[in-house]
Write a protein that binds this DNA or RNA. Structure first.
Lengths: 226, 226
DNA sequence: CGCAAGCAAAGTGTCAACACCTTTTCGGTT
DNA sequence: AACCGAAAAGGTGTTGACACTTTGCTTGCG
């Protein structure tokens, strides 16, 4: 996205069949098209997607790595069950990880990245002002914002963890639990505080704000689920 | 381990061929038997282990999930490269995650678990006193200790993350970088501080001590690698 | 002599078939 | 009629073979 597209990119960005299968299944699971806890029949899925079982199994293995499905030997794979308890645990984890991301981002983000983040936030502000595109865009916007903070940390271990593994699991929870968050205005303000902390290059403040932000989401959830 | 063994355990704990392959390869990579950055030839490995390529590919997929190998489409899989930079990043991550684990463990560990942890530490103390079994046992002991803290957090997301994914990667770094830590005495003292904080049920103190502990390891590393 | 195009070898991605395990159903027994 | 055991059906684990991509080498041309 940032790099000029002329500079030698990875040789042969071959998109394999397993890749497409993985994307399709991931989307289907996140959207709830394949319901929670349901068993995944390899022959049936393979037939419905018109592929062999081998490719499908490879895709399922990746889903297992994202914790979207659980497989038991000789019993097959089931879509993960979403207990409210585990959702809370996931948010606890986010608090620690994204707090760390914010702290590092305050040190490592480039001026250009910070400006781009500011532009994104301004756009979000307008959308909220107009009270339109509420549900989907605001949620997607929230994810985008957090996504950029994580990228800004420049810690590859952390980026891989949050953006490749836990990201989809979080999206699944969001979609399936409804989460028509009435606190988007609140969240937007907190995002602005965080941007200010990053602009000021204040790591401690950035971590504090981010942790508080995630904790607010969690508390809001705990009430909604209780 | 804790549950009475009569209560219905999982039906059929079948150990599949892929499981054994995964374990063998994981060990080989962690021990450095298969060197860093080396390409993994599927036909050769399949032949050497006397299995089909299909099973091998499944095992490699799991290794990829642990971040022990990286695979690129049509180019094959390579054992991950261990840069000093990424090692530092991994320790930054550990600081956040294990700090969180310690905080939660101070709240959630049972009295029995805390006692067992104390017994383990006492044993470590004797080993250090006798200055015997230095290298291997002390490293293994350190991992065991951290392992139990993580388990004690009772946060399943965190446990899965640290004990199933990042654990082996950390072991790999330890083994391959030598890490004949001369600070075992230091580490032991810090473990004792942490145990005390947990005994006192003081979450904040526990997190502080753990973060400091991991940070010390990191600083020690940064000096050794500079 | 150097370089590009093309060819051969090796390797990965994909597929269909076989073997073993699990579950269900059917028949026999108490 | 209910329960136990065995056979059949469905599903997963594993295998070997085929198709396409990449790589290294050879060959022909500048």
């Amino acid at each position: 996205m940032n790099e000029p597209s002329l500079i030698a990119l990875e040789p042969s960005i071959g998109v394999t069949l397993t890749d497409r299968l993985f994307d399709a299944l991931q989307r289907a699971i996140v959207e709830g098209e394949i319901p929670q806890g349901s068993k995944i029949s390899e022959p049936e899925l393979a037939r419905r997607h018109g592929v062999s079982r081998g490719s499908l199994r490879a895709a399922i293995a990746r889903l297992e790595a994202c914790k979207l499905v659980e497989r038991k030997p000789n019993l097959g794979a089931r879509v993960v069950e979403l207990s409210a308890e585990q959702l809370i645990e996931l948010f606890q984890l986010r608090e620690a990880l994204e707090g760390m991301a914010a702290r590092l981002a305050a040190q490592a983000m480039t001026a250009a990245e910070i400006d781009a983040l500011g532009a994104l936030l301004e756009q979000h502000g307008q959308q909220i002002e107009q009270e339109q595109g509420q549900a989907y865009f605001q949620q997607q916007g929230d994810l985008d914002f957090h996504f950029r903070i994580v990228q800004g940390s420049k810690n590859r271990q952390l980026i891989a963890l949050l953006c490749e593994d836990l990201y989809h699991l979080l999206r699944m929870y969001r979609v399936q639990f409804g989460m028509r968050s009435q606190r988007s205005r609140h969240a937007f303000d907190e995002h602005c505080y965080l941007l200010n902390a990053i602009r000021a290059r204040d790591p401690e403040m950035a971590e504090l704000v981010m942790r508080q932000h995630v904790r607010s989401s969690r508390r809001h959830l705990e009430q909604a689920l209780a």
